[in-house]
């Protein structure tokens, strides 16, 4: 191998690029994640800026989804999963004992890989979060909330005639947009998206990407994706994960045009994948 100016991977490593920001919504410090004895995430430090879209890319099994799930403590549902380090949501450590996961998840919403509408009506799906959190006082407010959430996701026109029909009857793309509407109906500060388009066809993907772009006006969005094009299209910053380590973080344009780390470059050019 020719002499390379770019960094290679060592046991102790330092994230290349600009992982830390001055003004951040979420700041992650020294986070390790273990599944039983197996370590899945190694010492990740990362800041996520307010009203920004950051995408996490990397080969499958690199820990990007695991990392995402740490951000609203979804990993709590897995018994053997153990998270150490510090993740701050506006100066509050979300792994602090005093933090209520229920409250946390109302602030940090999540959209999953496979559309997972509840087997209820479209209306009930969107109203679910508001109902459990008691966010509205009466039926009228709830109706408004449902309507506005669906409108923000561009789904209102398509479903307003059949709000009371089962959500499982929608197409895959519509279901995923419904899940996003369901998430934003709670008015979270951060939305986590775990490969939200991987189960969708190209046209539905395009619609969802457009939606993400619009939502970034008001929400901080972290998106995990296996599609580099998608990352390039929707995000301002991009983080590259490799075998549980955060290798490189930078502005999306920099990562894709001028990666600083050898692994990032290999991934971008298709040599790892």
């Amino acid at each position: 191998m020719a002499e390379n100016s770019k960094q290679t991977m060592n046991d102790t490593y330092e994230t290349t690029g600009i992982p830390l920001l001055k003004d951040s919504k979420l700041s992650v410090r020294n986070v390790d994640v273990f599944y039983g004895d197996k370590q899945a995430i190694f010492d990740v430090n990362l800041d996520i800026g307010k009203n920004q879209v950051i995408s996490m890319i990397g080969p499958s099994g690199c820990g990007k989804s695991t990392f995402l799930r740490c951000l609203n403590r979804m990993n709590d549902t897995i018994d053997i999963c153990n998270v150490t380090g510090e993740i701050k949501l506006e100066d509050q450590n979300i792994y602090d004992r005093s933090i209520d996961v229920v409250e946390l998840r109302a602030r940090v919403g999540m959209v999953f890989q496979k559309p997972n509408p509840f087997p209820k009506s479209i209306y009930e799906n969107v109203a679910y979060g508001a109902r459990i959190h008691g966010l509205t006082d009466n039926k009228l407010e709830l109706d408004e909330l449902v309507e506005s959430s669906l409108k923000r996701c561009g789904l209102w026109k398509e479903v307003k005639e059949r709000l009371l029909e089962p959500a499982t009857g929608l197409s895959g793309g519509q279901q995923q947009r419904l899940c996003i509407a369901r998430a934003i109906a709670v008015n979270p500060e951060v939305i986590l998206m775990d490969e939200p388009c991987s189960a969708l066809d190209p046209i539905a993907t395009a619609t969802v990407e457009e939606l993400i772009h619009e939502l970034s006006q008001n929400f901080t969005i972290c998106i995990v994706t296996h599609s580099m094009q998608q990352a390039a299209r929707v995000s301002q910053r991009t983080a590259y994960f490799h075998l549980g380590k955060l290798i490189e973080v930078n502005d999306t344009s920099v990562v894709f045009t001028n990666p600083k780390h050898q692994l990032t470059e290999e991934y971008i050019t298709g040599r790892i994948g």
Binding site: R105, F112, V186
Partner: peptide, 21 residues
């Protein structure tokens, strides 16, 4: 499916709310 549980937890539902609703 686990995905339904995840969906509900992701919105901030408690376990019993997820189970009941």
């Amino acid at each position: 499916p686990q995905s339904l549980r995840d969906g509900s937890f992701g919105l901030g539902a408690t376990k019993s709310e997820t189970i009941k609703k």
